[in-house]
Computed example of a mutant assay.
Amino acid sequence: MSLQWTIIATFLYAEIAFVLLLTLPIASPARWNKFFKSKFLAYISGQASIYFVVLIGVLILCLLDAIREMQKYSNIESTDHQHLDAEMQGNMRLFRAQRNFYISGIALFLLVVIRRLIQMICELAGLYAQSEANFRQAQSATVAAKTLLEKQGAGDEVAKKDIEDLRGQILLLEKELAKEKKDKEAVKSQAESLNREYDRLTEEHSKLQKKITIAGGDKKDN
């Protein structure tokens, strides 16, 4: 294998290993996103589109060269049988062309797959972060609602307590008012009895005075 195809094959093996790392549950999307946004990769990502286009171009050129070699040695194989050594060399070169075709084709395909996987992992990490933020916001809203309901319940309890106190004060005032009414009625009845007693005494006094007057007149006549 020439140096060119050795480099492409090594690149293919690295792509396969990297795809396995991305697909296996080794790290969460948040960690991969943190790794992709590290300082080193952030420095490289500024020119990542250029590197990607260059790699795509190189792999496409290698793929076209492999296709050309396949067509070339396939045409040689389809001609009349030549010398055995020449035929074996032609088959070996055709096999190498086919091998190079698969290497470059799979490397090109995996390069596109890796780029798409990285984009999807970053988007998934963003969705996870957004869902976590929404979950925390929902939790804080739930806590705030519970606190508001507890405060409202406490306010209702305070209002109920105030109402009970007012009812107790009203009952106490009603009792005092009834007591005052009874005392007033007792005083009134006592005053009426005193008036009656006064009238009786006044009447008896007038009777006694009349008797004394009559008794005095009788003595003068004698």
Rank of each mutant, 00 (worst) to 15 (best):
S2Q: 05
I7N: 07
F11P: 01
Y13H: 09
E15N: 13
K34D: 14
S38P: 02
S38N: 15
F40W: 09
A48S: 14
L55N: 07
E69P: 02
M70F: 03
I76N: 08
S78R: 11
T79H: 07
T79M: 09
T79C: 03
M92C: 02
A97H: 02
F101A: 10
I106R: 04
L108S: 07
V112I: 13
Q119K: 14
Q119T: 14
E123D: 14
A125K: 04
G126F: 03
G126L: 08
L127R: 14
Q130V: 05
Q130R: 09
S131D: 11
A138N: 13
A138Y: 05
A138T: 11
V143K: 13
V143Q: 12
A144C: 02
A145F: 02
L149V: 10
L149M: 10
Q152C: 05
D156M: 12
I163Q: 06
L166A: 14
L166I: 06
Q169M: 12
Q169V: 06
E174H: 05
K175R: 10
K181W: 09
K188S: 15
A191G: 02
E192P: 01
N195T: 03
D199M: 08
D199E: 15
R200K: 12
K211V: 08
G216R: 11
D218R: 14
K220G: 10
